[in-house]
């Protein structure tokens, strides 16, 4: 009986927690399906209205921005390109960096690793002016390349892969060597397939990281053609229901990615094999 009460109590607390997280999101969603007039006169809504299709289509296709050049659809495309680019590029660079750090036993491998690691303490905002000036010199402002490359070296992902490689037994390398595998083959035939789950996890991490970028895209793009969703959130003008609809839609891609890949994600982060 006492167990029932304690378990009931803890479930109650958890339930409150869930409500605190879910209710605001739900309110935004419910409100985004009403007309602007309803919101303005009656406040935020808890129940669904009937303007869902109309509001969301308008937001997706409305020509926004100062020069009326950009639609939300284009912003989603930009964000998708940027996030995917950042994810793929940073996973590739981290995989290779970790490989070099673990398997090329130079005297300075540990020192190099710590130098890479320390960059975690230097956020993008700190190095944003030099980074911008490099991109400007290279004429890469207002391009996908300029959006993606400067934020595509990840110390965290390098750390994860390095720690994983360190758990791979040496005998595996030795055995592969005797089987005629050279350095490149060992990387491609062994380390990459063995770190598959971790690669998926890192892809998700870096996708969300790229998707959530605000300051860098803001700085490196002046053309509205390269606006991303997160920039759009700030720039959106118009009726409050349209902004709500945009907010709702902006949450979809990261959530979708996590739902689709969550099995790999959990495996990759919490069990290293």
């Amino acid at each position: 009986m006492t167990r029932l009460i304690t378990s009931g109590f803890s479930h109650f607390i958890l339930f409150i927690g869930i409500l605190i997280m879910i209710v605001p999101v739900w309110m935004i969603f419910a409100s985004s399906t009403h007309t602007g007039l309803t919101i303005n006169t009656h406040g935020l809504q808890m129940f669904l209205g009937d303007s869902f299709y109309e509001n969301y289509m308008r937001v997706l296709l409305y020509q926004g921005g100062f020069f009326k050049e950009i639609t939300a659809l284009k912003m989603f495309l930009n964000s998708f390109i940027m996030a995917t680019g950042v994810a793929i590029l940073s996973v590739i660079t981290s995989l290779m960096a970790a490989y070099a750090l673990v398997y090329y036993r130079t005297k300075y491998a540990t020192l190099l690793f710590w130098i890479i690691f320390v960059t975690i303490l230097v956020p993008l905002e700190l190095r944003i002016f030099p980074t911008y000036s490099v991109m400007a010199e290279l004429n890469l402002v207002n391009s996908y390349f300029g959006l993606i490359v400067p934020i595509s070296a990840s110390a965290i992902a390098t750390l994860f892969f390095r720690q994983f490689y360190k758990t791979v037994p040496d005998e595996l390398l030795e055995s592969a060597k005797l089987d005629g595998a050279n350095t490149w083959r060992f990387f491609v035939d062994f380390l990459v397939p063995l770190s598959k789950t971790m690669i998926v996890a890192m892809l998700i991490f870096m996708f969300v990281f790229g998707y959530n970028q605000y300051l860098w895209p803001l700085l490196v793009t002046s053309s509205e053609q390269y606006w991303t969703v997160v920039m759009g959130l700030k720039m959106m003008s118009g009726s409050i229901v349209h902004r709500f609809a945009f907010v709702m839609m902006s949450m979809v891609p990261p959530i979708l990615i996590i739902i689709v890949l969550q099995k790999h994600f959990i495996k990759g982060v919490f069990q290293d094999k």
Binding site: E174, S175, L178, D179, N182
Partner: peptide, 28 residues
């Protein structure tokens, strides 16, 4: 080592965990 044409059996076997038995044998 890859050119010496020697084969080694290790204490912990060092089988390739991501390959099936066939590919373990065929890899070399």
């Amino acid at each position: 080592p890859s050119e010496r044409d020697v084969a080694m059996v290790f204490q912990n076997y060092a089988l390739y965990p991501h390959m099936n038995v066939y590919n373990n044998l065929a890899y070399g």
